[in-house]
């Protein structure tokens, strides 16, 4: 399984390196802005901060999309032989993909959370104190019409709930890709039908998440939502693996 995961990582390595490079440019801009302490510096800081936020949001989104593109290629081109000639079953092949993608999404999330924490600390140290830094950040947020009055915990828990939800969406995409390559293979409009099925699966998944009981403690609420996402991921993993094992011809 680890060897399969290693090659899954290798397949999506290029886009992750591109993301890392762009993040590096935004980070340099942010740090230059912090150290310059001039009006021009503030502009560069704003550019860097917005760049980092964009890298985080688009980057994590793209890691999921890249995994779907790779999976589609693995089932619909001759490179599928590289996976399905190995002495591994479909559950292992799919499991390696989901685990690698889940870990990539989670680690990217942690990476950006740590980066933001470090950048905030640097900002506090060099701009002249917490209040000044928050004022500057608030001005920036007002300028892009976002108002934040939250604790780090209140930001992190929904953030990780969003990551879990995104992983669930990616796995429902995997299921749709497998349906397209098996049940609907060779049929007219198989791509469209699979996309509609993906929307249906995602709709059902969102209904399941809505059915999570509401509790007073917000942290417990998020833990329950993340748990529900993982249960959905596991259910869809077994359904997808079962279809692949019985129906998939590459």
């Amino acid at each position: 399984m680890l060897k399969l995961m290693k090659y899954e990582l290798r397949k999506t390595m290029f886009s992750k390196l591109v993301l890392l490079c762009i993040t590096g440019v935004a980070e340099i801009a942010y740090l230059v802005g912090v150290f310059l302490k001039t009006d021009k510096g503030d502009q560069i800081l704003a550019f860097g901060a917005i760049g980092l936020m964009m890298c985080m949001m688009i980057g994590i989104f793209y890691i999921g999309i890249d995994s779907l593109i790779s999976f589609h290629r693995d089932l619909n081109t001759k490179q599928s032989y590289m996976l399905f000639l190995t002495p591994k079953n479909s559950y292992q092949v799919l499991g390696a993909k989901i685990l690698e993608n889940g870990l990539s999404i989670f680690l990217a999330g942690v990476f950006f959370a740590v980066l933001i924490a470090v950048d905030a600390s640097i900002g506090i140290l060099y701009i002249g104190g917490v209040k000044e830094f928050l004022d500057l950040l608030n001005q920036l947020m007002i300028s892009i019409q976002i108002n934040i009055n939250l604790t780090p915990q209140q930001i992190l828990m929904p953030f990780f709930a969003v990551l879990a939800g995104w992983l669930m969406t990616v796995v429902s995409g995997d299921l749709a890709i497998v349906l397209s390559a098996t049940v609907f293979a060779g049929k007219k409009f198989s791509g469209l039908v699979s996309f509609l099925i993906f929307l249906l699966i995602d709709y059902i998944a969102s209904k399941v998440l809505n059915a999570v009981p509401v509790v007073r403690d917000l942290m417990v609420q998020y833990v329950m939502i993340i748990g529900a996402c993982f249960i959905m991921v596991i259910v869809m993993y077994f359904v997808t693996g079962w279809i692949m094992e019985r129906k998939l011809s590459v």
């Binding site: 490179q79 599928s80 032989y81 590289m82 002495p87």
Partner: peptide, 14 residues
């Protein structure tokens, strides 16, 4: 699959 080696006619390497 541990004991059967197959060579496809099409190229299939990454």
């Amino acid at each position: 699959r541990k004991e059967i080696a197959y060579m496809s006619t099409e190229p299939y390497f990454y």
